[in-house]
Computed example of a mutant assay.
Amino acid sequence: MGDKNIALKVKREAPKNDNELNFIPVYMPDISGNEKAYVVDCLDTNWISSIGIYTEKFEKSCADFIGTPHAIGVSNGTVALHLALHCLDIGPNDEVIVPTFTYIASVNAIAQTGATPVFVDCRLEDWLLDPKDVEAKITPRTKAIMPVHLYGIICDMEAIKEIADKHNLAIVEDCAEAMGSSLNGQHAGTFGDIGTFSFFGNKTITTGEGGLVIAADGVLAARMRKVKGQGQSLDKRYWHDELGFNYRLTNICAAIGVAQIERIDAILDRKRAIARLYRELLQDTDVAFQAQRDGLVSSDWLISLLLPAHVNRDAVMQGMRDKGVDSRPVFYCAHQMPMYKLDTSFPVSEDIARRGISLPSYPALTDGDVKRVVSVLKEQM
């Protein structure tokens, strides 16, 4: 309680200087549409939990946008992953292949099923899991591959699907950062058995907290819908015939999501324009961006890059913050975390994790804001 009061007090203090007054954060959601009106409608009609018109509207809108027959809203992106794995009957004594360079939720969801996460390295050019390392890590216990489409770039799904088909493995796509990303016209999440999405406050579209699972298989989708609601029969109320979880998305969160997806095309257009401007303004430097394959249309969720090897990333980030521009490190490798620590080296992933930095990427950024970010970054390099 004390920490909360301190945080509120700090928030209310007057800016100390122009940099603090004009501070540019890494991300802010754009909630300038119908979000408030739809939330008030939930309150006025008393439909504030997981039943209501907005949950169905949001699921239908997401399904139409992604191009999938089945979309099920859940309470966040992490439980989306766990639900997917659970409904594929993955559990103790099983192994799931996952990149070590990813947000920790990808790995935690595997561990929560009782299965073992098996780490693979990434490719330097696109920072995504290396299919060659995937093939090398398959054992008789391997049940699934979890490609993670980091920062809006889609993995080499053709190679991954070939490996999965060869070894009869399931594919769970972690699309937390890839809403709006497509490869050769096919949306992220539709290449494998299940796709999962996150709608946290810093994602391309947000529900505050929320997530989504999608599947082409109607039987699998029906099971996920049932299990996310405590395993209650879809036809008989209060009859629970298998283990389930409370992973439901609230009507209020879905209402925000409906308003967000109404404007997703405009949000994506602006984010892509911001990404193009960053690349243009930084082309005279030695930074490296993720490579984008032919046929890829990225959501450009969070503009991230690698600083030159000789540059101290933490010093650069602190210097930028002192100048009123926030940034954040890319993800640390999961195999270096205490609960998953391995002595094995994953040199490419470790290099990316050490040098990577993410820049302000929210749609309300002006071109002038982007130019200021780049100017400050160049000063610190």
Rank of each mutant, 00 (worst) to 15 (best):
M1T: 12
G2Q: 10
K11L: 13
P15G: 11
N19K: 10
K36C: 07
A37W: 04
V39H: 00
D41Y: 06
C42W: 03
A63K: 03
A63R: 03
D64T: 15
F65M: 12
I66P: 01
G67D: 02
G67Y: 03
H70V: 07
G77W: 00
A80M: 05
L81V: 07
H82K: 14
L85V: 08
D89V: 06
T100G: 03
I104E: 08
V107W: 00
I110K: 00
Q112W: 09
I145H: 02
I145E: 05
K161Q: 14
S182C: 08
Q186T: 15
H187Y: 10
G195M: 01
T204M: 07
T206M: 07
T207W: 01
G210F: 03
I214M: 04
V219Q: 14
M224G: 04
M224D: 04
R225A: 14
K236P: 00
H240I: 15
E242K: 12
R248I: 07
I252L: 07
I256V: 15
R263D: 08
D269I: 03
I274H: 02
R276S: 12
Y278K: 06
L281W: 11
D286G: 10
D294F: 09
G295R: 08
D300I: 01
D300M: 03
L302W: 01
I303D: 06
L306C: 07
H310S: 14
D314T: 11
M320W: 03
D322V: 03
V325R: 01
D326I: 07
H335D: 10
M337K: 11
L342T: 12
P347N: 11
D351N: 11
R355E: 05
L359S: 04
P360K: 06
P363Q: 10
P363K: 06
Q380W: 07
M381V: 15
